[in-house]
């Protein structure tokens, strides 16, 4: 009973937050809605006995990723309303709805669920975090290391791209001037 109530509550909240995030014209509203949606999603993970994943979700998404967005937004004028041309919303909405319905139909098809066998079954009596640790450092060790390297590369790339000539305002110059400077520097 508790689980059902929690599911529906979280489901409604997440959907609403994300909906706000994709429709609002204020960047700050969108960021806030996104952050709340992320934290609410971790609630699902806890319901599903994936405590480790839930913690990671809060730390990485709500902590790191959204903080990164927040810092990134300091470069842009966030108080200004985001001006967007209105595309044909009906086509876009109907396309999304159509794909959702199709995916749901496919999930509902009986062929999918019948043919799945567990590769790494959950062992009773051991905590989720411990299980994840065991699988991650045995079966998924190589992907884990690759992911670590990828994060390192992404970090360096982010620093190099964003930190280049922090002291110069590139916006006040023409493209040609910037290109000339870059040529001189290199």
């Amino acid at each position: 009973m508790f689980e059902t109530v929690a599911f529906y509550l979280f489901a409604v909240l997440v959907t609403v937050s994300f909906f706000i995030a994709v429709t609002t014209s204020q960047a700050l509203y969108a960021l806030t809605a996104l952050a709340s949606g992320m934290i609410l999603i971790s609630g699902f993970f806890f319901i599903l006995d994936a405590e480790f994943l839930g913690a990671i979700q809060i730390i990485v998404y709500s902590g790191a990723v959204l903080a990164l967005y927040a810092f990134g937004m300091m470069f842009f004028d966030t108080t200004r309303e985001v001006k967007e041309k209105k595309g044909n919303r009906i086509i876009i909405a109907s396309l999304s709805v159509l794909s959702v319905i199709l995916v749901v139909l496919i999930f509902a098809a009986p062929v999918v669920s019948d043919n799945i066998v567990a590769n790494y079954p959950v062992v009773e009596g051991i905590g989720n975090t411990e299980q994840v640790g065991i699988v991650l450092f045995t079966k998924y060790l190589v992907p884990f290391e690759v992911a670590a390297v990828m994060l390192l590369v992404a970090m360096i790339a982010g620093i190099v791209l964003a930190g280049k000539k922090m002291d110069v305002s590139l916006t006040l110059k023409d493209d040609s001037e910037i290109n000339n400077e870059e040529k001189v520097l290199s």
Partner: peptide, 25 residues
Amino acid sequence: GDLTGQMFAFFVIAIAASEVAVGLG
């Protein structure tokens, strides 16, 4: 009752993090 799904979610989070870093840059 299979941990593979969680593993995938885990890697998806890692990829999302790096995507944000590079994309924002």
